[in-house]
Design a protein around this nucleic acid. Structure first.
Lengths: 252, 252
DNA sequence: CGACCGTTTGATAGTGCTCAATTCAAGTGG
DNA sequence: CCACTTGAATTGAGCACTATCAAACGGTCG
């Protein structure tokens, strides 16, 4: 159960997710919802219209797609990218359980990023029409989404700080710290990760080349800060890692 | 009159802004408001509680300040910055007539950026409590702010693309194009600017050094793309400038 | 096993930074 | 009105960091 500290809670499916069969399972999703006694507001459950599975490598949406819903990441892992006219891509974020995707589409009615699943994933579509509709009645629903958007603004401001002001060594350290922080907040290991993204994707996110990422990981491992085995990373000395990253506020 | 394309309009003062005397002029601001027949919703006027003048060089707010209002830029020019623990600063945006500042504060209740006036300016404070209150009744008010936030997300995504993927030459070109675009949308000259920010601030925004900004402006002027006289810039060949910037989507 | 993709590693080059000096612009006060 | 001060902008020289290019390595999956 994901608590948003807002009295809003996302509904939970019976955790086995027993029947991934049906494609447009509005009804099933609804009935599977769990009503939590402490939730002040049941509306969040109402705006979820469909569950959607996205295979590893598949796109959840493309830049230019018509915007009609926000996506709640239920399981799995995504990257989002913006691309320049000439094809250059910039990864703008990695997203996992509890994150909301698609907020960039509200502005113009068109999504401006691509969202790609980096592992088999499941998202819940939240109809924007329904969100607007229920926002009439439920202040905490409204505030939840406003806060989500604002949070994304803060995250991107910190990304700008990283891209504009940090040296590559610091970027990699910050990346790892933030990722581990995020895992920790979800109750997962805080010193070990199995990266879901390639060196290239990390590099794109951090504004450096994959070779540089690779070299810096080796450097960190030579200094006994990390233990690196391909995509398996273990933090040996989080104090030093934090020192390397010192400059930076949380990227979430 | 700033039209938001949402049926919402910001109230307009008698344009002379005759009496800049009173400091906390809630009443005056209110009474000076102009009711536009075409506005579907009068609530936007209601959330403006105070007019505030900010002298050149003064801060509108600091990172860490308690968040309680959004700021509508009525006149003047601002920069916003995030700073790292060690003091390094990253300018995250330049803001002028019609822009909304402070949205980063919604997330945590604390502002995460500094906002500094680059010329004598006036902002209107919009109480967030009132915004929330009137959001119960007015869907277009709600949507206006949601769209504002989303727009900021898109802007920052494009900034990330610029910082992460473009070469410095392209960054400067994109910066100029976007600035002129913004002026144009406000009915000002589309080929001439008097920059309100220093080379250093441009550099900070673009993730490059002021010396590099300076050199590139000279380069552009040698190539007859620009005419540069200190902070006065005139575009001579917007086609070529656009070619240099080619890679990039709008930064607004 | 072989093919392929991602990763690592090395050698080289280049972009943009650092540091320092100079020019320029705008005040300020005698 | 002009010397002086101050801050911004320009310009130059050398270098550091990171990109680029290329090759080798390794894990994974037909």
């Amino acid at each position: 159960m994901i608590n948003n500290n807002l009295g809003l809670r996302f509904p939970k499916l019976d955790s086995g997710v027993a029947s991934p069969t049906c494609a447009s399972c509005q009804l099933k999703a609804r009935t599977a919802m769990e009503s939590d006694g402490s939730a002040q507001c049941g509306y969040l459950e109402q705006v979820v219209t469909t569950r959607r599975r996205v295979k590893r490598g598949a796109m959840l949406y493309n830049g230019g797609d018509k915007f009609s819903a926000l996506f709640y990441v239920r399981t799995g892992f995504f990257k989002t990218c913006v691309s320049a006219k000439d094809g250059r891509e910039q990864v703008t974020g990695f997203h996992m359980l509890g994150d909301i995707l698609g907020v960039d589409g509200i502005s113009s009615g068109q999504l401006t990023t691509d969202a790609v699943a980096l592992e088999d994933s499941e998202v819940w579509s939240m109809s924007f029409d329904l969100i607007e509709q229920y926002s009439n009645e439920c202040a905490s629903l409204r505030f939840y989404f406003l806060k989500t958007l604002s949070n994304e603004v803060v995250r991107l401001q910190n990304l700008a700080l990283l891209l504009g002001s940090l040296r590559s060594e610091e970027r990699v350290a910050v990346f790892l710290i933030n990722l581990l922080e995020k895992l920790k907040s979800r109750g997962l290991s805080q010193s070990e990760v199995l990266l879901r993204m390639s060196r290239d994707e990390i590099g794109s996110f951090l504004g450096i080349r994959q070779e540089t990422v690779s070299r810096l990981l080796r450097l960190f491992s030579e200094k006994r800060i990390l233990q690196v085995d391909n995509r398996h990373i273990r933090v040996l000395d989080s104090g030093v890692l934090r020192n390397v990253a010192e400059a930076q506020g949380a990227l979430h």
